[in-house]
Write a protein that binds this DNA or RNA. Structure first.
Lengths: 212, 212
DNA sequence: GCTCCCATGTAATACGTTACATGATTGC
DNA sequence: GCAATCATGTAACGTATTACATGGGAGC
């Protein structure tokens, strides 16, 4: 139920087409939401029927008309109303962590490989976000203006970057942990290890993170 | 498509009923997945039809029969196959960050209030997770055994705790940022502020997080 | 020649959530 | 008395993803 408000929020800043909106979702807004064109187009039609947005068609050569949407005052009202209501609780779904949780079933080297590959993916994502954020702030610095909009969006983008950085750090730490505990995966002597056999590695790993 | 593997993974550790599985999802596995009973029960039936799990009904008084599921060797095979395939990319949806991104539309005091309320929710969640993790590790320490299973699940749970801690920190920092930049939300003199008017606050906020 | 970008959308399917249905037991 | 826990499930609805449909222009 939040997609529509993401669209309204975006249109509260600038007029845009469905295609433009999708690019924003892939780009900066990607740190907190994602969506497909086949979901955005129907949602835009609904929002227009409900009079929260209006559109004007701009004819183009060789392409379908470009439909530029603008937010209405009614649309701004519902946006602000939504901003003041408590957010839906986050619905955590992290397929990689789910796999990781059960990786005692695959060899330690495979575990390390998977962690390294996943880390790489996260690093690429981080670079992409950093690049987008830098571009945004360059143009803001040039225009030499400052608004609440800029501060609050910067805060959200910082959170996105932080998340990536910390996921990458976790991958690194966990690679080291698994490397130092490889023997536990060894099928031949898997039977009886004691807690104290790895308590040093465990406490190093958890140091400064938990207090168990 | 990952729910089924979460169920299989869980059943690779111990036999369980749908109700038990739901509790695990709410509890420890909650750091990376969540699901409803009305989704778990049909999935269990599907998995049984596909011969990945088997069940035995245990009659009870005053309650419906308890159906205890066990994983089959075929089920273990598909679990391991899944563990070796690349995970689906995470589908980020964070309704609170989406709201935050557009909070220049509501008064600064409301923004601070929302951040404080959200922070509180995260703190409660953190306490719940910490509690569950501590319980788990107590019983492991008592039994004085160590397996790959324990190490790898600990790593995932650490990630869950980290995430909460860092979200809470971000809330705090952002509350301070908004407090020190309140004047930007002031509707009367919203017109013309310069980048340099807040560059100190911004660089303090971004210090050690970004290098822009 | 092939892929990517632009630009719109529909249809079919898959996945997820809320509401409905039943009912005994335990604790506040 | 009321809510929570145990225990199973179905039905209706909502959201999200993939596949299908069209087609010109740019760059390799």
């Amino acid at each position: 139920m939040s997609l529509r408000y993401g669209i309204l929020g975006l249109l509260s800043e600038w007029d845009a087409s469905g295609y433009d909106i999708k690019k924003e979702f892939d780009d900066l807004m990607g740190v907190f939401w994602h969506s497909h064109l086949s979901q955005i187009y129907p949602e835009l039609n609904k929002l227009e029927k409900e009079k929260f947005i209006t559109s004007q068609s701009i004819p183009q050569e060789g392409k379908p008309d470009k439909k530029i949407y603008s937010i209405t005052s009614k649309g701004k009202e519902v946006l602000i109303h939504w901003l003041l209501t408590p957010p839906e609780p986050p619905k955590i779904k992290d397929p990689f962590l789910m796999q990781a949780f059960f990786m005692d079933h695959i060899p330690a080297d495979e575990v390390i490989l998977k962690l390294k590959m996943y880390k790489k993916g996260r690093e690429q994502r981080l670079e992409k976000i950093k690049h987008a954020v830098e571009e945004r702030f360059m143009s803001i610095k040039e225009r030499n203006v400052m608004k609440a909009r800029i501060i609050i969006s910067a805060a959200v983008l910082k959170r996105g970057i932080q998340q990536e950085v910390q996921y990458i750090n976790w991958c690194e730490e966990t690679i080291q942990l698994v490397e130092s505990c490889k023997f536990l995966w060894d099928k031949n002597k898997q039977t009886e290890f004691q807690y104290t056999d790895v308590s040093d590695q465990l406490s190093a790993y958890f140091f400064n993170a938990l207090d168990i």
